[in-house]
Amino acid sequence: MTEQRGGSGLASVLRIQGVLVAIALSAGLAIALVHEWTRPMVMAQRGGLLGDAALEVMPGAASYRIYVRSADGGLRPMGDDDTPELFIGLDEGGHIVGAAVVGSGMGYADVIQLVYGVDPAAGRLTGMRVVASRETPGLGSVIVDDKDWVDTFTRIHLPFDGEQNLRNLRVRSNANHEQGEVDAISGATVSVVSVTRIISSSLADWLPILKAEFDELSGGDRG
């Protein structure tokens, strides 16, 4: 890789530097240009994918507003440079019908990104869609393909202890959905556990915020 010999003297060093810098600059320029050109498309597609998933997991929702967490821990509407974090679903009349949260975490093979719907008032999940994953096709990919399993997320209640503190969702065979248990699938244990863990830890973050802000947002329907 290194060529110690070769032309010596300041001139040749300068020439080498010059060529390198020139190539690097044009490379950077080309990348920056294409980036500026493709970024809006990428953002739109991203938002679209997540938005479609969000609509699917919020029953009754016809449209949504997108929020992200603000620096003070509250919520603010999504800006141009943000990636969506929370969808608030609105029905035809513009009334709030639910919330969908974007969560992500490590699966078996790679990062899993998903959207899950949650009804903070009723204390239950309203659905789940995996948006991006690279789980083993035919095995772990059931978290995307197995409609029956995906549908159970519309029936899962959040597990609270007596004090109304949220406990973790758990994976079990013969799951009791009332108790926050998710069905196990043989051969896809890891992926199923990952999805459950992602939702569980995301809920721990979001549920307090949602509970606090949900009423306020409902009040702010007209805005």
């Binding site: 078996y108 244990t189 556990v193 863990r197």
Partner: peptide, 8 residues
């Protein structure tokens, strides 16, 4: 080793 390190 599948699933190792992913605590349930």
């Amino acid at each position: 080793f599948a699933g190792m390190g992913a605590s349930a």
